[in-house]
């Protein structure tokens, strides 16, 4: 009952939260120097032409009016049009956001699969060789730039070994993509039963996901290790040992207490990577949402940027809601 009330309240707050985010990002984007009309018309444009384009784009209104118009359109599901792709931003994002989501989710899954077991193993044996490897790895992963690692992986697995397809997009150009249902190519291919498309899409996914996984396993590993170590040294773990509880029980209880901080770091990374994976997207010509937004910023194309901010904000809020529900399930101090 409490939990439903809680979710209701959270959902209620989402609207003002989003409004705030849109306002702030609207002001920020507008403060970026650069005039889209100049860029659109080219260097030979006359002042008259620029002025008339301004009128057409609604740029002659004051900032509050522009914002009001944007909000009104937003309410009708109109996120504006990108002048670069000349398509509605909503359509662009519906196509590109799943691509980023697919990449980031798989990358993060890999990161969890690498980071959590390594972190646990090193927490159990603070002076063992595994802890040594984990420390070294945590340090390395934290200091390597992701795009550099991506280039190294491309060199090894594509250029030298030829194990993976060329880092150009999400699927071989010669293969017809499956009909879009979710926008996630691998899933769509499976839904269509198109094995060839699935193999190609999965093959393209391997290296960028691996890059993200290897890099982001670092913070997850460190967090798992430190919170698990803390829990194993905590008063209640020590008390359980004093009570003669077997080791596996002590570890299981400590693990449950360490879980919230691990879940937190994963959720933070998830939200961050939607935009933070952009360099990897660029290296692999992924055509994801991050890449789309960066192009928008560089070319004074406001609406893609705003649309991207809105999409990732909604996504982050959703992730945090899920995390809160996980806390609810784990920790009675919150749910009571």
């Amino acid at each position: 009952m409490r939990i439903i009330l809680y979710i209701g309240r959270r959902l209620l707050f989402i609207v003002p939260q989003l409004l705030g985010i849109v306002l702030v990002s609207f002001l920020l984007v507008k403060s970026i120097p650069g005039d889209p009309a100049v860029l659109m018309l080219g260097p030979t444009a006359t002042p008259d032409a620029i002025a008339s384009l301004h009128r057409k784009l609604g740029l002659d209104h004051s900032l509050p009016v522009q914002f009001w118009i944007y909000l009104k359109n937003l309410a009708h599901g109109d996120l504006g049009t990108s002048w670069q792709t000349t398509r509605p931003v909503l359509e662009d994002l519906i196509q590109r956001f799943p691509a980023t989501l697919e990449l980031v989710s798989l990358g993060l899954l890999l990161a969890v699969l690498i980071g959590v077991p390594l972190g646990l193993a090193s927490a159990f044996n603070e002076r063992g060789w595994l802890a040594g490897i984990a420390n070294f790895y945590g340090l390395g992963a934290g200091s390597l730039p992701d795009f550099w690692l991506a280039l190294v992986l491309i060199f090894i697995f594509y250029t030298t070994l030829q194990w993976v397809p060329a880092p150009l997009g999400r699927i071989d150009l010669t293969i017809v993509p499956p009909p879009p249902v979710t926008g996630v190519l691998t899933v769509d291919a499976l839904l269509a039963g198109d094995w060839q498309a699935f193999r190609s899409a999965a093959g393209h996914l391997v290296l960028p996901a691996l890059t993200l996984g290897l890099i982001n396993a670092g913070p997850i590993l460190k967090m798992t290790q430190s919170s698990m170590e803390k829990m194993l040294q905590s008063d209640f773990s020590r008390y359980e040992v004093l009570c003669g509880m077997p080791r596996r029980l002590v570890v299981r209880h400590a693990l449950r207490n360490a879980l919230p901080s691990v879940v937190t770091i994963i959720s933070v990374l998830y939200g961050f990577l939607i935009g933070g994976a952009v360099l990897v997207e660029i290296v692999f010509s992924w055509g994801g949402a991050g890449q789309y937004a960066v192009q928008g910023v560089l070319n004074s194309d406001f609406y893609p940027v705003l649309g991207f901010v809105l999409f990732s904000a909604i996504f982050s809020l959703f992730v945090y809601l899920v995390v809160d529900l996980i806390y609810f399930a784990i920790d009675p101090r919150i749910s009571h």
Partner: peptide, 9 residues
Amino acid sequence: RGELNPLVP
């Protein structure tokens, strides 16, 4: 209160 496991009844 600090010695009892906070997550276990």
